[in-house]
Design a protein around this nucleic acid. Sequence first.
RNA 1: GGAACGUUAGCUCAGUUGGUUUAGAGCGCUGCUUUGACAGAGCAGAGGUCACUGGUUCGAGCCCAGUACGUUCCACCA
Length: 735
Amino acid sequence: DPKAKTALSDEEVIRKEVQSKLYYVKYFLSRETSDVSRETNTRHSPLTTHDSRLTTDDFITIATVRPETILGDTAIAVNPNDDRYKHLHGQFAFVPLINRRIPIITDEYVEMDFGTGALKITPAHDKNDYQIGEKHGLEIIDTMNDDGTMSEAAQLYIGEDRFEVRKKIVMELESKGHLVKIEDYTNQIGFSERTDVVVEDRLSLQWWVDMKKIYKPALEAVIDEEIKFYPAKFKNLYRNWMENIRDWCISRQLWWGHRIPAWYDDEGNVYVAKTEEEAHRQWSMVNGQSKDSPTHHSPLTTHLRQDDDVLDTWFSSWLWPFEVFKGYSNPGNPEIQYYYPTNTLITAPEIIFFWVARMIMAGFEYMKEKPFSDVYFTGIVRDELGRKMSKQLGNSPDLLGLIDKYGADAVRFGIMISSPAGNDLLFDVKEESTLKQGSFFINKMWNALKLVKMWESKQAASDKPQAASFAVDWFENRLNEAKVEIEELYKDFKLSEILKTIYSLIWDDFCSWYLEWAKPGFEESIDANVYSRTVQFFEELMQLLHPFMPFVTEDIYHQLKERKEGDDLTVRRLKKYSIQNSEILKQGELLKEVITAIRDARNKVQLKPKDQVKLHIRADNSSAYKNIENILQKQVNAESVSYVNEAVSNSINVVVQKDKFFIESKSHADTSSHKEELQKDLSYLEGFLASVEKKLANERFVQNAKPEVVDIERKKKADAEAKIKAIKESLESLN
RNA sequence: GGAACGUUAGCUCAGUUGGUUUAGAGCGCUGCUUUGACAGAGCAGAGGUCACUGGUUCGAGCCCAGUACGUUCCACCA
């Protein structure tokens, strides 16, 4: 529904700070309130000083950076509260050089403390002046031509370039006593985005879209999450813009683009139509011509002239989701039916208004349906000072250089790991710490591959149940657990979180735990089944990581095993995860916890890693350790593991959950630091217990909180009490 | 001037409808460990009154109000 409208538009204008001059210019006052001065308002009849009605004191001084626009002035404005000018309210002044008589008006818009506090009003060449002009009913005098030269209406310097005129008019103003002073001044000036030329505000006739008529479905779709934004914070920005939507100027004076489908007749009437024929039919109806045969067009068509303007790029672009499949021009075709609406739009937050919002509006307006379901906004890459990367600042990293230095996958890793959905990405070019992390990660995977390949030739059929079988069962379940997490994260487009999860799964769970647990003893062979399962786990890990680090993962995949032609990670289907055995996962966690606690205790009493110990376990349920005792023994360098019912004297005590571990060592163990550690644990636990007890003592908590929450607190209390008891016992045994 | 978003460990950030510990991760930092995949490593550790003030609640990093600071967008700067 285009309509013609007169206004000023400032799209595609880049504002830049420039050094300018601020010219202070005297406008002589008219003391007459009658229209005696009318006679002076003619061309080239400068009101010179011999005019008896004026003295040199009778002037008002304004400040301007564009003295050439003086010729288009139609008023002077002052702030109504400005005492300096109160006596001039309702008076008149003369435009210098051409002596047009203009009113002195009052408007709150005028800043009293800028310049002289008096502002010249040029409605044809300044947006604000235009608005003031509209408000006060001022005359509009367009003093400039399309090519930036002065027009007839300027009266002076007709046909000369605006910048030349600026120089000349300053000289003339000075010679005629109008120039008070010139100051240096820094201001912002609009430059054309395309040609980098200073933009002058001018009045022109343009095509506009009345956005208020079409925005509603697009607003509601995003608010109701029929279309989801990731991250959701952009919803508010979108809402704010849509609720205050302004008309859209869609015509552009360019050579390239979709031409405006509007035709003019000789009288200047407009006919908007899909085709020239249709425009002509409209013209015929308006002009009372008979609609003879529709296939036979008369030469009258030549009377119509199509608008030279083209549509704004974004007006063409908002058609993109459907018109790339001819969804509007050929409705219901098989492609549009398949591809519309589509799933996900990936784009930058800075074009939410330009493009995203408009595609949504066009979708509802022309297709009666949303164009896509999800919009994922990528972050903007900034340098360590938070500045956008740009050629001008020269703060962009040399990506090809970084790839040479760290590898393509490491660079991908570094960028992906530090770009949480929709947040800006601070990229520290000097540190490059995440890139280093990426290349270390690659190194880690290569070393894991090296280890596994070493086992390849040392496989043997197993005759006895191995410690490694628990490791295999555990990792299988751990892998499935991680796959579920990853799938959830994908649904929310949390790409950096996914990568972190995979990173930790590979580094910690696979390399640090699983491979150590599955590792055969020195010079021992590996169970053939354990080996093939290990290879399979490795494959699956590489597959999970493949979208983030495609090169190294594909390479490792092929090195793990002989592959048939076409068996590549990039086209391999993801294996569906199966249900996890939570009991095994729990045992794995217990194992990790016990290993860590015992290593910690060994470390604290300064036992060397080489020093072998005897491990005694006192557990309520010692069968829980049967599955894992082999691994435990190996991981804490114990020569034996036994189960006891009594405390073991002269040992280092470790408490994990409710179970106690006694570490017996031949080496001299420094028990004083051990006691200190136990004391520290004890005071922490006592503090914790106090906080839980306080909570449980609060009647209102017990009454109001959900029963399961209260149960959790009770369990916390019981666990803490058991642990405190065990630690106290240990402390006593050390005395 | 208007609006949106943010403020959690030295740095970069998680923390999913308020309730499993006295808040997590990565990097950095500190200590210990060097010939069996990996020192580009391993093992462990330290480090935070969750910007501030008030409110709602049995309970707040999370909800509400205000303040401060920051980032971005829009408008304006004669």
